[in-house]
Amino acid sequence: MKIAITSQGNSLESKLDQRFGHCQFFVTYDSDNGTIEIIPNPYHNVEEQAGALAVKLLSSKNVAKIISGEFGLKVKPMLDSLKIQMIILKDDSKTVQTIIEMLNKTYSKEE
């Protein structure tokens, strides 16, 4: 299962971005084989519809869950109808690395 995390920078030490559509980078983590991919967000400077465009980008990559600080009002119903789970983490001190470690523990337990 693929999980997307919004990130402020292009390394694993960078912190979770609190915005969804306007975040700098998306980090996708595949819990089946442990691969990590860093995608720069092409829409982080777009003024309008950044969230909707980001949803399209991530859904084309078959992401099942998205971890971010906040989701906008337009994004929520879109993700709901696409059956993508939203996880809101208001703690911006966590780095992408720690989140991936947390996910790793959770999904290795399940199998």
């Binding site: 993508i84 983490l89 208001k90």
Partner: peptide, 10 residues
């Protein structure tokens, strides 16, 4: 335990 909010799409 981790203070996150999440939804259940299914």
């Amino acid at each position: 335990s981790c203070g996150c909010h999440f939804n259940n799409p299914e």
